[in-house]
Measured scan of single mutants.
Amino acid sequence: EVTIKANLIFANGSTQTAEFKGTFEKATSEAYAYADTLKKDNGEYTVDVADKGYTLNIKFAG
């Protein structure tokens, strides 16, 4: 089991951190699915992958 950390960075400057656990593939998939649910209210997003994929910096356009 691994932990994927998602740093969520919103257009208004606020930030939030979420963690997803499971296999690497499952946790990564859940992180992207979570970002997709936030897209409606926060706009499109870009992802900067860090720490060999264990950290995702997800920035929303607003």
Rank of each mutant, 00 (worst) to 15 (best):
T17Q: 10
N12C: 07
A27H: 00
V2H: 10
G53R: 02
A50G: 10
T55K: 06
A6R: 00
G53P: 04
A6N: 01
N7P: 01
L56Y: 04
G53D: 04
T55N: 06
F20L: 02
I9K: 12
D41M: 13
T17G: 10
K26R: 05
G62M: 07
G22P: 01
T23A: 11
K21I: 14
F60S: 00
T23S: 13
L8V: 11
G53T: 02
Y45L: 02
A35E: 00
L8S: 02
F24G: 03
K52D: 11
Y34D: 01
Q16R: 15
A61L: 13
E1D: 09
N42F: 15
N7T: 13
I4K: 00
K39M: 11
E44L: 15
E25N: 08
I58V: 10
S29R: 13
A35Q: 00
A50N: 08
G43H: 02
K39C: 04
Y32I: 14
T3M: 12
Y54G: 05
Y34C: 04
I4N: 00
E1M: 07
E44K: 07
A11E: 10
G43K: 02
N57S: 07
Q16S: 11
D36M: 05
N57V: 09
Y32L: 15
I9C: 05
Q16M: 14
L56G: 00
A50Q: 14
N42K: 10
D36Q: 07
K40P: 13
K52I: 09
D51I: 02
K59N: 14
G43T: 02
L38F: 14
A50C: 05
G43D: 03
Q16P: 02
K52R: 09
N7G: 02
L8F: 15
D36Y: 03
A6V: 10
N42S: 10
N42E: 12
L38P: 00
Y45H: 02
Q16E: 07
F24E: 04
S14Q: 15
K59I: 14
S29E: 13
K40T: 13
Q16G: 10
V2I: 11
A6Y: 01
E19K: 09
T37I: 15
E25V: 06
S29W: 08
A33P: 00
K5W: 12
T37V: 12
S14Y: 12
A33V: 07
F20N: 01
K40D: 08
D36P: 00
N42R: 11
N7Q: 09
Y54M: 07
Y34L: 10
K5G: 04
A35P: 01
T46L: 09
Y34G: 01
D51T: 03
A35N: 01
N42T: 04
G62I: 07
I4T: 01
G13E: 09
F20C: 02
T46R: 09
S14N: 10
Q16D: 14
F10A: 03
G22C: 02
K26I: 15
K5C: 05
L56E: 00
F60N: 00
T28N: 07
V47S: 06
L56D: 00
G43Y: 03
E19F: 12
E19A: 08
F10Y: 15
T28S: 10
F60W: 05
A18F: 10
G53H: 03
D41V: 15
F24V: 10
K40S: 06
S29M: 13
T46M: 12
G62R: 08
N12G: 08
D51V: 02
Y32R: 08
T17P: 06
A61G: 08
A18G: 07
V47F: 05
N12K: 08
L56S: 01
T3R: 10
N57H: 10
F20V: 02
Q16I: 09
F60V: 01
A6S: 07
F60P: 00
G13V: 05
D48S: 12
G13D: 07
N7I: 15
V2S: 07
I58A: 01
V49A: 12
E25A: 07
K21E: 10
E19L: 12
T17V: 15
N7V: 13
N57W: 09
I4M: 03
N7S: 06
G43L: 03
L56T: 01
N12M: 07
Y54R: 06
V49M: 13
I58N: 00
A50D: 09
G43F: 03
S14E: 08
A31L: 08
A18M: 15
S29Q: 14
A6L: 11
K39A: 08
G13I: 03
V2W: 05
